[in-house]
């Protein structure tokens, strides 16, 4: 594995540098995607998560997406679909 490059911060260091995770909403809304990474038994876990979300957040739209293989990053079209449709993502179940 190639090493990632480390640089010295050229700023006054008042603000953080680097990638920041997305800001979180106060509550789940819109469409939530459950992405099954296609490992054995992950589907049962995802089914149960979906059921629990329906129970708790009846207005939440839960959709299921399937990653072709867990061994590689998701293909661009899956990422784009997530980008277009989802307001939140659960990716499961890495083992």
């Amino acid at each position: 594995m190639s090493e990632s490059l480390v640089i010295l911060d050229p700023t006054d260091e008042r603000a953080p540098l680097g990638r920041r995770p997305a800001s979180r909403p106060d509550r789940l809304h819109g469409t939530l995607g459950i992405i099954d990474i296609a490992k054995p038994r992950g589907d049962i876990f995802c089914d149960e998560i979906e059921r629990l979300l329906h129970d708790r957040f009846p207005q939440l739209d839960v959709i299921r997406l399937q990653k072709p293989t867990y061994t590689k990053p998701a293909p661009g079209d899956l990422r784009d679909e997530v980008g277009e449709r989802c307001q939140a993502v659960i990716q499961a179940l890495a083992d």
Partner: peptide
């Protein structure tokens, strides 16, 4: 892309 995400793993 601004989408909150969570990884579930063993």
């Amino acid at each position: 892309r601004g989408i909150p995400s969570v990884l579930v793993a063993s």
